[in-house]
Amino acid sequence: MAGRNISVSEASRPKLPRHAKLKFDETRQVWVILAPERVLAPDEIAVEVLQLCDGERSVAEMVDQLAAKYAAPREAISTDVIAMLQDLADKGFLNEAREKTP
């Protein structure tokens, strides 16, 4: 059950699971998330956040990066990023990177 049913926090290091692929669809000229029996269409900001979800970077680091880029209050960004990622996680489209074995 590793990595599933995650509660997203600033310490999380989320990544898309194998069955959820973020990809730019050339035909429709739009970003999509491909998942079992589903095609999702994330907006530009969601895409930007998801591209940072590599299982290495923590949510805190993502928020720092976005706050700097958009010169926006860190707290507001943190709230929004966590809410968006939690929503994806609850639907099964986001995992936490497995703990590295020592």
């Binding site: 907006d43 900001i45 969601a46 998801l50 209050p73 929004d80 809410a83 968006m84 929503d87």
Partner: peptide, 12 residues
């Protein structure tokens, strides 16, 4: 930014 992300939540 905050509003856009909130929208992102619903359309993601």
């Amino acid at each position: 930014m905050s509003d856009i992300l909130a929208e992102g939540k619903t359309t993601a």
